[in-house]
Design a protein around this nucleic acid. Structure first.
Length: 486
RNA sequence: GGCCCCAUCGUCUAACGGUUAGGACCUCGCCCUUUCACGGCGGUAAUAGGGGUUCGAAUCCCCUUGGGGUCACCA
């Protein structure tokens, strides 16, 4: 066997951001490594120069750190098997491609894009089941090749796939998978710009980096026979494969940008907690076999196993993420939430206002029970920070009666005469007003809430009053009387 | 279209031949509460279809259907 301790890797291409599907793949790799005392390696697959994105790698590293997926080796964490950027390993691929070339397991191809397009069109016209390269350049003589190379003719190097062989491999998640080589194309291994394609680079690197388990998304399953062939040609031992089920849009297609946020940083900026995100994503395709849904990272590590990963795709369900984030939020101490809250305030339109920690803590106590994210402390209860600029019509028509203005006028007077120390004092005032007018306190409650928040839901009225303070309470009552008595 | 993968409530899932098919999110109802929530209790809701195998099938096999992935000098 290859291993005593497993070595796994997460190998994203730097497209600009970390995709949540990528996060799930990275997480499973991480959990598997930690669980089995193995190593988790981060390797950057940046062999596509056309798709080079400025700052993408830095961004990726930052996001990996934010979600807490520490790697043992990576671009900024040198290890024994570096470099960990594929663009810095070109000479390594060159060496191995030469071996392949010598053994005629790979060959130069000088076909022009035009010929290739034409070939494809013809094959489609003939209704061939599958378009494949016709091995045209395989018959080139050594001299012809030398000559073309000397003349600097543009070329690629292709994998020489043998006909009519069965490629099979065992997938930890899917079991035995088989392909006929008749359906695998002579894959380009080295592009005309001299860079390797994914297929070449990932096989070489996985071998050289002593990767024991290749844990990646299911979209790679159908190109795995090419990889298996490469291992065979290079006479290298096969790693174990585990192809993870895909993360899906609501319509069950592969999770994509078009249908919502897919970048981890989007979720970060929307106020989701890293623990909640990890927890949620971990459960998309895996469960421990019990009813536990709330996890911290250490518990995930303890319970994770590839054997319990599902085969079928999972819809990325925002509602459940919201719930989980709320659960994680509630478990946080108010001190921690206070810091998060202050950060949110600083990046909101409220950044120029000043609130005491005491006030903020009052808001936290009220809001953390009823929101999904800290951001919603603000968005769901704007009336805690500023006077309502309108009154909800449905709620208003329900609670605003003919005598409401008169009752509230009395209430103002009583509040003004009272010493207000905490929220219970507002209740006392409402009761006194109700008694004085011989009505139930319910007659006051609705109009009072309407005055303070303008809407029919939110924290308890006394809590709202307590948060905004006596002067503001009185002022808001005045405003609602003035506005609705017209 | 070829190839490959997949198939339990709307969604995430449990069940590894014998359960009234369980849990969670969502949703609905009731209780609590002279407000809003929280909380508590309860409800609606699933084995895609058809054949086998078996005393017994969500579970094993086959077919059909459906969905997805992949067929680039992108990963």
């Amino acid at each position: 066997m290859i291993n005593d301790t497993p070595r796994v890797r997460f190998a994203p291409s730097p497209t600009g951001y970390l995709h949540v599907g990528g996060l799930r793949t990275a997480l499973y790799n991480y959990l598997f490594a930690k669980k089995n005392n193995g190593s988790f390696i981060l390797r950057i697959e940046d062999t596509d120069r056309a798709r080079y994105v400025e700052g993408a790698v830095e961004n990726l590293l930052t996001t990996m750190k934010w979600v807490g997926l520490d790697y043992n080796e990576g671009p900024d964490k040198p290890g024994e098997f570096g470099p960990y950027m594929q663009s810095e390993r070109l000479d390594i691929y060159r060496e191995h491609i030469n071996n392949l070339l010598d053994a005629r397991k790979a060959y130069y191809c000088f076909c022009t894009p035009e010929r290739l397009t034409q070939l494809k069109e013809e094959q489609q016209k003939q209704k061939l089941p599958q378009a494949k390269y016709d091995k045209h350049c395989l018959s080139l003589s050594k001299a012809e090749i030398e000559n073309k190379l000397k003349n600097n003719e543009s070329h690629v190097i292709r994998l020489n796939v043998p006909p009519t062989e069965t490629i099979s491999f065992d997938d930890i998640i899917r079991g035995k998978v088989e392909f006929s080589t008749n359906v695998v194309d002579d894959q380009i291994l080295i592009k005309s710009d001299g860079y390797p394609t994914y297929h070449m680079a990932n096989v070489v690197d996985d071998h050289l980096m002593k990767i024991t388990h290749v844990i990646r998304g299911e979209e790679w399953l159908s190109s795995t026979p090419k990889h298996v062939l490469l291992y065979k040609f290079l006479e290298w031992e096969l790693p174990q494969f585990a192809h993870l089920p895909l993360l899906l849009n609501a319509d069950k297609s592969k999770l994509s940008k078009r249908q919502g946020d897919v970048a981890v940083e989007d979720y970060k900026s929307k106020g989701y907690l890293k623990d909640a995100l990890n927890n949620f994503v971990a459960l998309l395709g895996w469960n421990a076999g019990d009813d536990q849904e709330f996890y911290y990272m250490d518990e995930l590590i303890e319970k994770f196993s590839l054997e319990r990963v599902n085969k079928s795709g999972a819809v990325f369900n925002l509602e459940k993420l919201n719930w989980l984030n709320g659960e994680h939020l509630k478990k946080l101490s108010n001190d921690v939430i206070l810091e998060l809250f202050k950060n949110e305030l600083a990046s909101s339109e409220l950044k120029n206002t000043n609130y005491s920690d005491d006030t903020l803590l009052l808001i936290i106590d009220q809001m953390k029970e009823r929101v999904a994210t800290v951001k919603e402390f603000i968005s769901e209860a704007p009336y805690l920070y500023s006077r309502p600029n309108s009154y909800d019509e449905v709620f208003s028509s329900k609670v605003w009666k003919d005598n409401s203005a008169a009752l509230l006028t009395d209430l103002i007077e009583i509040i003004n005469e009272s010493e207000i120390i905490d929220k219970d004092d507002y209740e006392t005032c409402l009761k006194a007003t109700a008694e004085k007018n011989s009505v139930g306190i319910g007659k006051l409650m609705g109009p009072f809430r309407l005055a303070l928040s303008g809407v029919g839901h939110g924290p308890g009225v006394y809590d709202i009053a307590n948060i905004i303070g006596k002067d503001e309470v009185v002022e808001r009552i005045r405003v609602v009387i003035k506005t609705l008595s017209l």
